[in-house]
Amino acid sequence: MKRTNTATWLEKYNRWQIKVQKDGQRRTFTCSTPGRTGQRKCHAKADAWLDDNIADSNARVNSLFADYLKTLQETTSKSNWVKIQSFGKNWILPAIGTRKICDVTEQHLQSIINKGYAKGLSKKTLTNLKATITSFFKYCRKRKATTLLPEDISIPKGACSAHKQILQPEYLYKLFHSDITTWRGKPIVDPLIYAYRFQVLTGLRPGELLGLRWKDIRGNEVFVSQSINVYNEITTGKNENAIRHFFMSETATVVLQHQRQISHTERIFGDTDPQKYRKSWQRYCRANDIPQITPYEMRHTFVSIAKNLSEGQIKPIVGHSQNMDTFGTYGHEVNGELQKTAQQLNALFLEILEG
């Protein structure tokens, strides 16, 4: 069935609106995106509903979500689908699980986000919840169960980012001047001391650090191609930007040389999994009176130390993306710039470590 009318802008409600009818049933579609882009989105919603191919609109959300989760279990890592399973169990299904998919509106989905905000979820967690909702409804559209495209659900502006700590200079100094930890009440040399130091010098994610193999080191260049998740599974990393390469600073190179003298495994820092690494780091912090930051916050420490450098220098090292800006879309590697970054990073750390 073809649409014959067009969406109109309702100034009072600050949104586009279109009403269409099919088989005696009338539906209203809206979009709050201004300009012709919003009008096109509004038309797309109406056109999708008018399409006669919708075949599973009476299915219940909880049944569809179970199928969606099964698909993820077959195609993604456990660390990914477990998070989505948790969002479904704790937030999505309690709100709309018993509803027919055809009865779910964007307001139902926005209410899920709003409830999470009211319960104190961080901005990052709310963003991940929204991404789960969006991905689930994309799956449902592919199943021809709904035409709902929830692009207008939003994170409340008051949502706060979770507080992160870093190692301040005095504690960085301790990290590079003490290799002692405790084991069963006795002082010993920490077998992972060079892992801690290498992570804070390179900004690697904990899983990336533990996934590094000696064959990933070519001269003073590091090639990141795999990661170890919390379930000790080998993955390709957090996202497409996780696979990358960078040049080590001179200080990081020296740390790796020390590790090579004690390493006897394919993976540089042995077969340590993220949970053991975290516990080992916590013991080291207690033994050296260092604040209990997480291994992931050592990545934050790296970025904080290097923040006087440009984003164009740092983002390729830590594997961060940029959304359609000059650096992210048009910035390409120039021969020699990664080596220059390594030299500048080395100078920043030496200033702290030499006192």
Rank of each mutant, 00 (worst) to 15 (best):
S57V: 07
S32G: 03
T125R: 12
K12A: 14
G211E: 12
E170M: 06
A48G: 15
C140L: 04
L256S: 01
N288K: 10
D51R: 11
V61G: 03
V303M: 09
C160P: 04
Q292E: 14
L149K: 15
Q339Y: 04
A48E: 11
L338I: 06
L167C: 10
G120T: 09
T8I: 11
V318I: 13
V20E: 07
Y196P: 04
D325T: 10
R143E: 08
S249A: 12
Y68K: 05
D67C: 13
E208G: 09
G24P: 14
D216Y: 01
T6M: 03
V230F: 04
S280H: 10
Q313I: 13
W214I: 10
Y196D: 02
S86Q: 10
Q17T: 06
T71S: 10
G97K: 03
R26T: 08
K215T: 07
K12R: 09
R213Q: 14
I314C: 02
K19Y: 00
F137W: 15
I153P: 10
C31G: 04
G38H: 06
Q165R: 13
S321I: 11
K119F: 09
V20Q: 04
N53I: 02
L345R: 07
D103Q: 12
E250M: 11
G319C: 00
K45Q: 07
Q259Y: 05
K157C: 06
Q292S: 08
S32L: 07
F87S: 14
I268M: 12
N288V: 08
N239C: 13
T341E: 00
K340V: 01
A252T: 09
E297F: 02
K186C: 00
D271Q: 05
Q275Y: 13
K130C: 07
L126C: 11
H320Y: 08
K340A: 14
N232A: 13
F198P: 15
I243D: 14
P169M: 07
T329G: 05
Y296Q: 10
A66G: 05
E74H: 03
H163N: 15
P150R: 05
I243M: 09
H264I: 05
L204A: 14
Q107D: 13
Y173P: 02
W81H: 12
L72W: 01
R143Q: 11
E208Y: 05
E233W: 13
G185M: 08
E250N: 15
G270N: 06
Y117D: 12
I262M: 09
E221N: 14
K279D: 15
T253C: 03
P206M: 03
F349D: 00
R3N: 12
I262E: 14
A95E: 10
D103T: 08
I166W: 02
T341W: 06
E208V: 14
M298W: 00
Q261K: 13
F198S: 03
Q261W: 05
I217M: 14
H320P: 01
T235K: 01
R197S: 04
S304L: 04
D325Y: 01
N308W: 01
F247A: 01
P94K: 13
Y68L: 02
T147V: 01
T8M: 11
K130G: 09
P295G: 08
L338Q: 15
R218A: 10
E354I: 09
V61W: 03
R143Y: 01
P295L: 11
N241F: 04
G355Q: 08
H320L: 07
M1L: 05
